[in-house]
Amino acid sequence: MNLTLKIWRQKGPSAKGEMKTYQVSEISGDMSFLEMMDVLNEQIITKGEEPVAFDHDCREGICGMCSMYINGEPHGPDRGVTTCQLHMRKFKDGDTIHIEPWRANAFPVIKDLAVDRSAFDRIIQAGGYVSVNTSGNSQDANAIPIPKENADLAFDAATCIGCGACVASCKNASAMLFVSAKVSQLSLLPQGQVEAKDRVLNMINQMDEEGFGNCTNTGACAIECPKGISLDNIARMNREYLSASISK
């Protein structure tokens, strides 16, 4: 298929950006979206120009590094996938595709489609862990049975890949889905209970400091999340936060 691409080009963090138009041809439906971008970049390089910078790494939907806003949706029109697992069979010959970076104050653009998501790391650093040292003789793994239902819910929350699609999809650029996924995972497990109150307070405090917006329960984040992280996590975090705020 032949496609018209309108892509955000921005030389650096403080440079002025603009949409630029490119044409690509002979795109196969079996290509991933990033492989289509590879074709475009090869074409640009052959002309001696600068290729489009974008983040990507594993290309199997798990590292969370790819991050394109495609036709107004993070990771494009397909559900339950990251951009690297979005395949061109979702598009038609002659389509025009708009490609932009994540847009949020807390995710400044580095170049073209690559943004800085280190705010997410700082939120985890504020409390997204169980404070246990490496010892090798901590208690036996089977010493505390955990109901399968809780273990499964904790796992579902823990599958968050930290890509930032939730923030990009949110009209308020809120990070509530990301933060609540980690808070939920650890509050559902006995190992995480001990520090549950401090954790939720510290992580939310850091989230606010980073400049993420508020949650208005619109739910776009859960629809666009490539890993299907549920809105229930936000409800659980709100409950945890309320209870921690009262008792602390």
């Binding site: 793994a141 399968k148 497990l189």
Partner: peptide, 25 residues
């Protein structure tokens, strides 16, 4: 020799391994 300690360590960190209905790994 150290393999068993890894599982203990990871569970202590809150790694959600698959469990059976009885709650064990």
């Amino acid at each position: 020799e150290v393999s068993a300690s890894i599982i203990d360590q990871c569970v202590a960190q809150g790694v959600p391994f698959a469990r059976e209905y009885g709650g064990l790994l």
